[in-house]
Every structure is written in C-alpha cells, then in structure tokens.
Design a protein around this nucleic acid. Structure first.
Length: 109
DNA sequence: TCACTGACTTGGC
DNA sequence: CGCCAAGCCAGTG
C-alpha cells in the first residue's frame, strides 16, 4: 500500500471518469461512503501530484467550479485540459455541467 | 493523544 | 447572487 487506501480509492474513481466527463468531490466522497468526506477527496487530489495518471482536472466542486485550477501550476492549465477534452469552461465554471457530470455511484453502479 | 489543516457541502441571512 | 458559520473525515506534526 502506497500511502492510504482512501487516497488510492479516490484516484481509482477519478481514473474511471470517462474522457469529456467530470465529477465532483462530493460524488466521489459519496461513492466512498462519506458525503461530507469531500474534503478528504480534495486532500487526496492534493497528493495527486504523486499520481500523474490521475486526471484531477476532471474533478470539480459540486457547483462545477474549477476550484483546484490554481493547484495545476498554471491558472489556465485545468481549463485548457477540460477544453481539450470537449468540456467547455467559462469563468472557471463548467458549461452544461449537468450533462458533463459523471456520478460514480450512479454511472458506475 | 490532541490540535490544526484542507482542491468540500449545506443551510441560513 | 453573495458571504458566513457549522459539520464532516483523514492525514500530519
């Protein structure tokens, strides 16, 4: 076990997110069992720098806002990545987020 | 063991 | 539509 199974679980779910789709911290946390554990998901993403295979840019808050874009090194890196995958972003907010939203506890059911 | 922190969420004003 | 306070869990010092 690398660091923590919890983190690995988060990474696993994030990696399962289809290209062109996005998910939320709460959704992942809910899938793990703790809806309020969304902070842990964010914390796990903070460690995502140790997991290059984890598309953290596909993880946003429940409002569809690119909350962690500032953590990508470049303030536009996250947006560029999403745009590159077909996800339109405007003012740090994902357009038609409802359609792009991918719920692991729902789609991965 | 205790206390602090954090890329969140929700409810209230 | 905006900001504030509380709740939650796990990791680190």
């Amino acid at each position: 076990m690398p660091q923590s199974d919890f983190f690995e679980n988060v990474y696993e779910v994030v990696k399962l997110v289809p290209l062109g789709r996005v998910t939320t911290y709460g959704a992942i946390a809910a899938y793990l069992g703790s809806r309020r554990g969304a902070r842990m998901v964010g914390w796990a993403m903070n460690n995502c720098h140790a997991r290059p295979d984890v598309p953290a840019h596909r993880v946003v808050n429940r409002n569809g806002i690119l909350t962690g874009k500032l953590f990508f090194g470049s303030p536009t890196a996250m947006q560029e990545l999403l745009e590159s995958e077909g996800v339109h972003v405007c003012s740090d907010e994902i357009i038609r987020f409802s359609e792009k939203f991918w719920d692991p506890s729902l789609e991965l059911l």
